[in-house]
Deep mutational scan, measured.
Amino acid sequence: LETFPLDVLVNTAAEDLPRGVDPSRKENYLSDEDFKAVFGMTRSAFANLPLWKQQNLKKEKGLF
């Protein structure tokens, strides 16, 4: 999966995202380093959170 810089994904409308980016899964296009910096946890820890908590975190970080 291709990764993009944080500033390309945060608070970006679906139509302005790079081609192929799923707007409902912007976090998947962050590098592992950016993911950890944004969410303060690994991808696996994030995946283990309840869906509502994942969505709330994504909203807080501008990735929803």
Rank of each mutant, 00 (worst) to 15 (best):
K58I: 04
L17F: 08
K53R: 10
D16P: 03
L63W: 04
L9R: 01
D32P: 10
A45P: 01
N56K: 13
E15R: 06
G62A: 04
L63K: 01
S44N: 13
K58E: 02
L9E: 02
N28P: 02
K59M: 14
N56L: 10
P50W: 01
Y29A: 06
V21H: 03
F35E: 00
N48G: 14
R19T: 15
D32M: 07
F39N: 00
G62V: 01
D7C: 10
Q55E: 13
S24C: 14
K53Q: 14
L17K: 01
D32Q: 09
N48A: 13
A14E: 15
M41Y: 06
R19I: 15
E27K: 00
L57S: 04
V38G: 01
R25F: 11
V10Q: 13
W52S: 11
L63E: 01
K53S: 13
D7P: 06
P5D: 06
V8M: 15
F39D: 00
P50K: 04
T12Q: 07
W52A: 10
D34E: 08
L57K: 05
S24A: 13
V21L: 07
F39E: 00
N11S: 07
N48H: 13
Q55A: 10
P5H: 05
L63F: 06
E33L: 11
F35L: 03
N48S: 14
P18H: 04
P18S: 01
P50M: 02
S44L: 12
K61H: 14
V10R: 10
M41C: 06
R25W: 07
D7F: 10
D34Q: 08
E27G: 01
V38R: 01
L6G: 02
D16T: 04
N48M: 13
R19N: 15
E27M: 01
K53L: 15
F35C: 00
L49W: 05
R43F: 09
D34V: 08
T3P: 05
V38L: 09
L6E: 01
L9K: 01
L1W: 14
R43Q: 08
D22G: 01
E60D: 12
G40C: 13
K26E: 03
F39I: 05
N56I: 13
A37G: 09
N48V: 14
V21Y: 05
E60A: 12
D7E: 15
M41K: 01
E60S: 10
E60C: 08
R43D: 01
P23N: 04
D22C: 06
N28G: 06
N11R: 05
P23A: 10
V38E: 04
K36V: 14
S44Y: 13
G20V: 08
Q55T: 13
F39P: 00
E27Y: 03
A45M: 12
K26Q: 03
A13D: 10
F46E: 00
V10K: 10
N56A: 12
F46C: 00
A47S: 11
A45Q: 13
Q54I: 04
M41L: 08
S24M: 14
S44A: 13
V8Q: 10
K26N: 03
P18F: 02
E60T: 08
A13I: 09
K26Y: 03
G62F: 07
Y29T: 02
K36S: 14
L17T: 04
L17I: 07
R25N: 08
N48Q: 13
K36N: 14
F4E: 02
F39C: 00
P5F: 04
L30A: 00
E60Y: 07
A14P: 14
T42P: 11
A13T: 10
K59H: 09
F46M: 02
A47I: 08
N28R: 08
E15N: 10
S24L: 15
L51D: 11
F39K: 00
Q54W: 00
Y29N: 05
E2C: 09
K53G: 08
A45V: 13
E15D: 14
G62L: 06
M41Q: 05
L9Q: 01
T42K: 08
E27W: 02
F64E: 12
D22E: 05
R25S: 09
Q54S: 03
K61Q: 12
S31K: 07
K59G: 07
M41T: 06
S31L: 04
R43E: 02
L1Y: 15
E27C: 03
E15W: 06
P18T: 01
F4I: 08
F46K: 00
E27Q: 03
E33M: 10
V8T: 07
E2I: 14
V8R: 10
G20S: 06
L6T: 04
G40H: 14
V38N: 04
K61M: 10
L51E: 06
D16F: 06
W52E: 13
R25M: 10
F4Y: 15
P23G: 07
V8F: 15
E33K: 11
Q54R: 13
L51A: 11
A37E: 14
L57Y: 06
V21T: 04
D32W: 06
V8C: 08
P5T: 07
D22V: 03
S31P: 03
V21A: 03
K36A: 14
N28A: 13
A13N: 12
G20N: 09
F35Y: 03
L17C: 06
V8I: 13
V21I: 10
K26F: 03
D32T: 10
Q54V: 04
N56T: 12
D16Q: 05
L51V: 13
K59N: 07
N11K: 08
T3L: 07
L51Q: 11
E15I: 09
D32K: 07
F46S: 00
A47C: 08
R25Y: 10
F39S: 00
L49G: 00
D22K: 11
E33D: 13
D32H: 09
L63I: 05
E33S: 13
K26C: 05
R19W: 15
P50Q: 05
R43W: 07
Q54T: 01
V38S: 06
L1K: 13
D7N: 12
W52Y: 12
L30H: 00
F4K: 02
N56Y: 11
P50S: 09
N11L: 07
S31T: 14
L49N: 01
K58D: 00
A13G: 08
G20L: 04
F4W: 13
K59L: 15
V8A: 09
W52C: 10
G40S: 12
E2N: 12
R43L: 06
K61F: 10
N11D: 09
D34L: 05
S31G: 06
L57N: 03
F46T: 00
A13K: 13
K26G: 01
K59Q: 11
D7H: 15
M41W: 03
L63Y: 02
R25K: 14
T42Y: 06
S24F: 14
V8S: 08
F46P: 00
K61P: 01
V38T: 12
E60M: 11
G20F: 08
P5N: 05
Q55K: 09
D22W: 01
P23F: 04
P18M: 02
E33F: 11
L9D: 02
E2S: 11
